[in-house]
Write a protein that binds this DNA or RNA. Structure first.
Length: 740
DNA sequence: TGGATTCGCGTTTTT
DNA sequence: CGCGAATCCA
């Protein structure tokens, strides 16, 4: 039943105290909130108040009694985003927590569904969720069982391929065997099927399966009852960051929305930066075709950045071909131009950034409102060193996540085996941690038995301890381990889960192992274990905790103190700062050579979107820099400015470089007319490497440089076939070599 | 079995 | 260069 929406019209005085739902919304935003029926795509540019629209829309649905919380399915990409949405909607609802709606990430929602219907795909409802590390190890096991050469065929490549198939919504039977390509001796498809079979034996699922299984269930006519139930349940669907969806996620949504057709997707095609992990920009570009009758609402007024910054960003992104097209505008005035600076090397770059940071500080700007956004994490080091030197407090965001730490994964492995003893990957992880004298030989014996009988490792331990096949010492160790696990299992229902975890870690000797460890990071690891146990309190039981830990756990960054943020561009999506520094704009580093090599124009366009994301993080000031040479893997590598530097509209930037360093847009390229050089040629079994080392001119400065180290150059007669893997060397060398 | 040593390679990161 | 993994050797 629809309530009269007129009564919430902005013109009408509201009767409740929290009436400001529509206050200050511009017409497009208001339209995006109020268009409730039919498919809607809200194309929301950077800083256009997307979050506001999204939460207002949800609050509006609830307040007007158009939907109950249980009838809303809201999907985000990160748990953080889900949490934020929950809080903000509650706030709009007058501080009352909103419960009962299906809010979460694609994976958490699918996992929740799959728990209820696991039997339809042959799983128990207490299945374990494997992370990417487990996936690789499983792939490795299967390849080894096939007698394949792990060195020639990296298991990681197979695991990635399987994940990518899953992201595309493909199960083994959807694939022809020739889709294996060269991968895994052409057996990739076959191995995928085996992999799935093995997962079933282990009563386990990987991340991709969560969605894939649900799609399989929904598609099967025999399960029509299930899909109908969800159709009845969900009246309104809402998806944030739609540009980041992959095919499987799209299919899942598609199936769920069939009935109501009330889907509202919010996203920005210009901020799609996760193509490398399966996101399909095409999903958002195709929206109107996929959902006939869809309405597209553009949010183009940017409330974040000043004019020059926005125009610079618009100029860069304008070079992309595949766009839905929108041009952001601001009414905040021109502000300052974007500063572009060329420097000699990465240390000079760090020094310069810090000078500017300190200059801003003297103007009264706060460190917490500044960020350095890099393309790759190795760039961070130069900045960290300089920050420490000058005593500028900083915080690195990102890095290995909490649950990916060794000690956390070990602890979880103990819990996983306790909950679900067929979890081989978990058991293998901790079977000899702490050291129990169970080495590879023993584990191989166990695995051989397990495979032959098609049973789990745990079961196979049980079998073998009933025989005399094992050495007495090994046998008694294994029996002790089995006893331990059986005892812990019996405690699951009677003991509080955090207490049980402590017991397990103590009795297994795991805690003692770290206490005895004298390495400097051991105390930190013990701390992390404590934190893990503390975080268990938030969950009802071990089962729920393990599910969330696999999907959720995040190290909460305490937002205390005044520090500058150092992170990757990817990590910065959705954030904003007064001042943003974007170092390392060199061809090959940014745009990354690998993106371009692997994905061509598509890769380049994604890199360009990353540039766009970077520039638009700033409210008042953006600084961009590039260097002439940079240390990479121990050797100094020369580079030229990123093509993105040249794409910045001249009228919105101020460019200044070290004397003699190549400046984009100025006439002189470096002059290599009179170089002196040495060529060293070394021939090995695999390749021929030529190193060209010499002195030559760049502008008015004489440079010494070395090209070709670690790269392969074939010289045949006059023709040069240069196969470069590294950075922007190629373009430099091209012009250089011409003169040789 | 496990400590020592060499080897190989090197984006982005969420679930 | 620096780190984790594979491999070597006692």
């Amino acid at each position: 039943m629809m309530m009269d929406s007129e009564m919430f019209d902005i013109e009408e005085p509201e009767t409740t105290p929290e009436t400001g739902l529509f206050d200050g919304l511009n017409p497009s935003q208001k339209e995006a909130v109020e268009t409730l029926n039919g498919p809607v795509l809200v194309l929301a540019g950077a800083g256009t108040g997307k979050t506001r629209v999204l939460t207002t829309r949800l609050a509006y649905l609830l307040k007007s009694n158009t939907a109950f919380p249980g009838q809303i399915l809201a999907v985000t990409f990160t748990n953080k985003a889900a949490q934020e949405m929950k809080e903000r909607v509650s706030h709009l609802m007058g501080g009352v927590p909103v419960e009962g709606w299906w809010l979460g990430t694609f994976h958490s929602l699918a996992a929740r569904m799959l728990r209820r219907h696991a039997d339809r795909v042959g799983l128990d409802s207490n299945y374990t969720i494997l992370d990417s590390d487990d996936q690789v190890r499983l792939a490795k096991q299967l390849m080894e069982a096939e007698g394949m050469d792990i060195k020639k065929n990296p298991p990681k490549a197979l695991a990635m391929k399987i994940s990518s198939w899953k992201d595309k919504g493909k199960i083994p039977s959807d694939l022809k065997s020739d889709e294996s390509g060269d991968l895994a001796d052409g057996k990739a498809v076959q191995l995928y099927a085996t992999y799935q079979q093995r997962l079933k034996t282990l009563n386990a699922c990987d991340f991709g399966d969560l969605l894939l299984h649900m799609i399989t269930i929904f598609k099967d006519p025999a399960n029509a009852d299930i899909l109908e139930d969800y159709h009845r349940r969900f009246k309104y669907l809402l998806v944030d960051e739609y540009q980041d969806t992959n095919v499987a996620q799209y299919l899942w949504l598609r199936l769920l929305v069939q009935q109501s057709n009330n889907i509202c997707c919010v996203g920005d095609d210009d901020q799609s930066i996760y193509g490398w992990r399966g996101a399909e920009v095409d999903n958002i570009l195709r929206f109107e075709k996929d959902f006939p009758g869809a309405k597209m609402i553009r949010l183009e007024e940017n409330y974040r950045s000043t004019g020059h910054i926005l125009s610079a960003a618009n100029g860069v992104i304008g070079n992309n071909g595949n766009r839905l097209g929108k041009e952001l505008f601001t009414s905040r005035g021109d502000g300052e131009k974007v500063t572009v600076r060329g420097l000699w090397d990465s240390n000079a770059e760090a020094r310069w950034v810090c000078e500017e940071v300190e200059a801003l500080q003297t103007k009264g700007w706060s460190l917490s409102q500044m960020a350095v956004l890099v393309r790759t994490s190795f760039q961070m080091r130069a900045f960290e060193e300089r920050f420490i030197q000058l005593g500028i407090s900083y915080k690195v965001i990102g890095g290995p996540r909490f649950y990916e730490r060794q000690e956390i994964r070990d602890a979880l492995a103990y819990l996983r085996v306790t909950m679900q003893s067929h979890d081989d990957l978990a058991l293998e992880r901790i079977i000899n941690k702490p050291k129990r004298g169970l080495g590879d030989a023993t584990i191989q014996t166990l695995y051989t038995h397990a495979r032959a009988k098609n049973i789990s490792l745990y079961q196979s331990i049980y079998d073998l301890t009933q025989t005399e096949e094992l050495r007495p010492k090994v046998k008694s160790t294994l029996m002790k381990l089995m006893d331990d696990f059986e005892r812990w299992k019996s405690l699951v229902s009677s003991t509080h889960h955090s207490e049980l975890a402590t017991t397990i870690l103590d009795e297994s000797g795991y805690t003692a192992m770290w206490k005895a460890d004298k390495s400097p990071d051991a105390p930190g690891r013990l701390e992390n274990l404590k934190e893990l146990i503390a975080s268990m309190e938030d969950f009802e039981d071990l089962q729920q905790f393990l599910e969330h830990i696999a999907l959720v756990l995040d190290n909460q960054n305490k937002n205390t103190g005044d520090y500058i943020t150092l992170m990757t561009l990817h990590g910065a999506k959705g954030l904003e700062f007064d001042a943003v520094f974007l170092p390392g704009w060199e061809d090959g580093l940014f745009p990354s050579q690998r993106s371009m090599d692997e994905s061509g124009v598509k890769g380049l366009e994604e890199e360009r979107r990353l540039a766009y994301v970077g520039i638009t993080r700033a409210r008042k000031k953006t600084y961009i820099s590039y260097v002439g040479s940079r240390y990479m893997y121990g050797s100094l590598v020369s580079s030229i400015p990123s093509r993105f530097v040249e794409e910045l509209p001249k009228e919105h930037i101020e460019i200044e470089t070290e004397t003699g360093l190549y400046t984009p847009g100025r006439s002189e390229h470096w002059d290599s007319s009179a170089p002196s050089y040495n060529k060293t040629r070394s021939v090995s079994a695999r390749s021929e490497t030529v190193i060209i080392e010499g002195t030559f001119n760049r502008g008015d400065r004489v440079m010494h440089a070395k090209f070709g180290e670690g790269t392969i150059i074939h010289i045949e007669g006059q023709k040069l076939d240069i196969n470069f893997s590294k950075s922007g060397q190629k373009r430099v060398l091209d012009s250089f070599v011409e003169k040789l």
